[in-house]
Design a protein around this nucleic acid. Structure first.
Lengths: 204, 204
DNA sequence: GTCTATATCGGGATAGAC
DNA sequence: GTCTATCCCGATATAGAC
């Protein structure tokens, strides 16, 4: 046990992350956030102009981080499939490392007021577009299945995002194991096609 | 334009569904729900004991409906793969038909108080277990890829559930098209393996 | 920078008339 | 069954001392 060296601002933010995730934005009283941070409610206003500003900062920070990681991956050399695996790994790694933060992003978009909402949604759109561009490239190259790229991007993002809801750091699986399982599901699907040659799948 | 034949209770519930979905449970004032239903806020209490009861009824109804549909599908004859396709179709069909209701189920679990939360979570667990049993059977039969059945069930449910967030009835795709696209992604994955025979996939 | 005290408001819920 | 009127509480935010 050593003394807490985080700045008050950081403590407030961490407390907000915890309570927004546990109770939801509207249900989390500023007094409780302050209490968790070890100060009085009024003191928060020296560091943040409003409760809403706290929410926006949390969402903005990690959406930008998510986008930055994906941009870096897409800019790297390597095949579409390799970059897709890297994208999946990055998404899951961030969503497990910043579990609460991304859970908030995923569930509290509605709590954003006015232009804050537009701003965060624009970042989310950007992320989706980056992934869609990769998938599109793969489909055109013929290395990915011909599919609806928009829908496929939603599917991949949804399943990888939801890891933040159920993953437990001390649970049965490591992050790497989760990444491997998801990668395989996304790449090959669930249905086994043993030595498929010419014959069609049984699907109508 | 004909007269509204829905009971007042139904109107209240429909209004609650709309506003809970649009604004979130805590952000939706009972006065607005009443106004949408064409009555005064106090009149709601003749039909429902509390705001919370309204939320519980909405969630409970549709979680039970979802489970009932899946149970029926699993009890039918047919291969695991056929039943999996039927399960996906059922999930997506319900999540697009009752888009707002399932969006609420997906985002407002935290708003449930005390034992209400346990009750709804138990229903969700039940659904997951039903799907897991099907997947497990498929893996054991060798018709599904060897995978982590729990994680696979989360992945399938997450991606199919999120359809409720983006689907628009008047949008580019019909429900059936969405079902077909998702079925293919879940079954075969995104990576193409042209005439794969013995050679391994390029994945490390 | 943090505190105490408080302004101000909107929310769910209730009482009781009709 | 639905209304009007209102209770009562907890919420964000502000004022101003220290």
């Amino acid at each position: 046990m050593q003394t807490d060296t985080r700045s008050v601002r950081e403590k407030i933010r961490a407390a907000a992350v915890q309570l927004f995730a546990e109770m939801g934005y509207h249900a989390a009283p500023l007094r409780d956030i302050a209490s968790l941070a070890g100060i009085q409610a009024a003191s928060i206003y020296y560091h943040y102009p409003s409760k809403q500003a706290l929410l926006v900062e949390i969402m903005d920070t990690h959406m930008r981080q998510l986008n930055a990681h994906l941009e870096k991956i897409l800019a790297q050399p390597g095949s579409v499939v390799e970059r897709l695996y890297a994208a999946i790994a990055s998404h899951i790694r961030l969503h497990t490392t910043y579990k609460a933060e991304f859970f908030i992003i995923d569930t509290e978009i509605r709590a954003l007021e006015g232009e804050n909402r537009e701003k965060i949604l624009a970042l989310r759109d950007e992320y989706e577009h980056l992934l869609q561009r990769l998938l599109q490239e793969g489909v055109e190259q013929g290395v990915l299945q011909p599919t609806d790229v928009k829908v496929a991007s939603f599917a991949v993002i949804a399943m990888c995002t939801e890891v933040a809801s159920w993953f437990r750091a001390q649970g049965r699986l490591t992050v790497q194991q989760v990444i491997d399982i998801y990668s395989q599901i996304i790449a090959q699907g669930l249905v086994r096609h043993p030595e498929r040659k010419q014959e069609e799948s049984e699907r109508t």
